[in-house]
Write a protein that binds this DNA or RNA. Structure first.
Length: 260
DNA sequence: AACAGATTCAACCGCAAGATG
DNA sequence: CCATCTTGCGGTTGAATCTGT
């Protein structure tokens, strides 16, 4: 209810901010965060509501279409333990091995895990660390070896081009609690629709299953870095802003009708 | 039902590395 | 080569939520 103070912390992101960010990342790709923050209006000149850094974080940890939500599976837990024993606190590196999970999430998980472990140790001293710990429960038929993506290179899941690969490795289901009036799923759908109507993008029609991954608005790798065409000049850019306004007003309508 | 303590998770910060001019 | 800017990473914080009493 009561939101965070506005002194140093900018506080939680609003749905509208999310929508703006998603829209502009779709247009410009998930690089150049400072630029995205500025053109989306999230970062106001002089004021610094949402820095590029902040936008990136929000995208990576929450808005990225490939994100899994919900609890870690026993297999994932085991993998985290395994990799952490190998690499230590290299969270981003570990996260690359767990498609759909972010370094932040893993980091948080680890903290929780360590706390639990510390508690357990209080009761019983068990040197049997990682592999025998937490996840060796009955349901755990998978071993680390069963993760096919372990064999692949360390392509970052955050890469916009990544989800396609991830989708083929593992179907990701996004759990929606349903408590949000306008979930990210809805936003993505909405964007996809808007896109069809307005932008006529290059669309991967063969990717039904991975609709969480392959949002048509996400800049495809093929043009993401072609800087000359991408980083357009004023007039063209104004066009984009105009289009985005349409997105936002569409969103606001939808949101308002849900909120009441 | 009410409270306290524990847990979860989104967000921020500082720093370092890489990119760019 | 150097200065500046941007991005990414790991650590930390604190509000929200859950759980036990």
């Amino acid at each position: 209810m009561k939101m965070v103070q506005e002194e140093t912390r900018k506080g939680p992101w609003t749905e509208q901010e999310d929508f703006k960010l998603v829209s502009f990342v779709g247009l410009f790709g998930d690089r150049r965060w400072d630029f995205v923050a500025k053109v989306s209006g999230l970062k106001v000149e002089g004021d610094s509501n949402r820095t590029g850094k902040s936008c990136r974080l929000r995208w990576v940890n929450y808005l990225h279409p490939g994100l899994k939500r919900g609890k870690m599976t026993p297999q994932e837990e085991r993998l985290v333990l395994e990799l952490h024993s190998k690499w230590g606190n290299r969270w981003s590196r570990i996260a690359r091995k767990l498609p759909g999970r972010t370094d932040n999430e893993i980091k948080n998980y680890w903290r929780t895990h360590m706390r639990k472990k510390a508690h357990e140790k209080k009761g019983a001293v068990s040197p049997s660390s990682i592999s025998s710990n937490c996840c060796s429960s009955s349901s755990n038929n998978h071993t680390v070896d069963s993760f096919p993506f372990l064999e692949t290179g360390e392509e970052s899941f955050y890469d916009t081009g990544g989800p396609t690969k991830i989708a083929s490795a593992k179907k990701i289901e996004v759990e929606q609690e349903g408590e949000q009036g306008y979930s990210m799923d809805d936003i993505w759908k909405d964007i996809a629709l808007s896109e069809e109507n307005i932008l006529k993008p290059v669309y991967k029609s063969d990717s039904e299953e991975g609709c969480n991954f392959i949002c048509p608005l996400i800049a495809s790798p093929s043009w993401e870095y072609s800087s000359e065409s991408l980083w357009m000049m004023d007039e063209e850019f104004k066009m984009f802003l105009h289009i985005n306004d349409q997105f936002i007003s569409r969103y606001e309508q939808g949101s308002a009708s849900l909120i009441g």
